[in-house]
Design a protein around this nucleic acid. Structure first.
Lengths: 100, 100
DNA sequence: CCAATGCGTTAGTGATGACTAACGTATTCG
DNA sequence: CGAATACGTTAGTCATCACTAACGCATTGG
């Protein structure tokens, strides 16, 4: 799965945002969600496969953190999608709105 | 399905880009993909439900075009995801790279 | 040591996604 | 009018996803 699709799932989006502020353990992350720790663990593994997060083993905990290089790749994917043409359409719409 | 997830699917990403350059009929779009017209039609309906595209009936054709307002919503969703913190991590990574 | 803690793993389930093939419907062209 | 065209629609398949429950393994604290 590419980074774009991996990041699109709502729970995974929130996980990335949580980890952006600072690294966290699996339990910490899971406590912010209504689903089980197992589900979160699986999301984390998927994000890790996509190169967006990485785990560091510390004692019996695993500290997950965001991988800047992976984020860069994601941003590049988004940018590649968000072409100038798409952007122009949005900007034009904005202009029309502000002229009303 | 929210706009972010709708736009994440690779084929739909390409459809949006195609339509960004100019409106097209279903057959025109489908000719750019290896899958059947039916599959494309279904992707288009899903994109329409997400408010990202709209169809105008012209004779026996349907001209699909991108909906600027929907794109704006998508961009807003992406921006809400791409927080300052995520951005800072990427920028820092860039700085490190250029210092090597 | 032994119980508790932190996680990954596995198996199973229900839902959904992406797709094809076949069909139905409206529209146009000769 | 009748064939061809442009689409949507439907049904069915196969794969994948998101999730839970249960278990297993390492690590640590009393």
């Amino acid at each position: 799965m590419d980074a774009f699709s991996a990041a699109a799932e709502p729970n995974r989006r929130r996980i990335l945002q949580l980890l952006a502020s600072q690294p966290k353990t699996v339990t910490e992350i899971a406590s912010a969600f209504p689903v089980t720790r197992s589900a979160i663990s699986q999301h984390l593994l998927l994000l890790a496969e996509a190169g967006l997060v990485a785990a560091e083993k510390v004692g019996r905990q695993r500290i997950y953190r965001v991988v800047p290089e992976g984020l860069r790749a994601l941003q590049a994917e988004i940018d590649r999608f968000w072409t100038d043409e798409l952007d122009r359409l949005v900007v034009d719409a904005d202009t029309l709105r502000s002229n009303r």
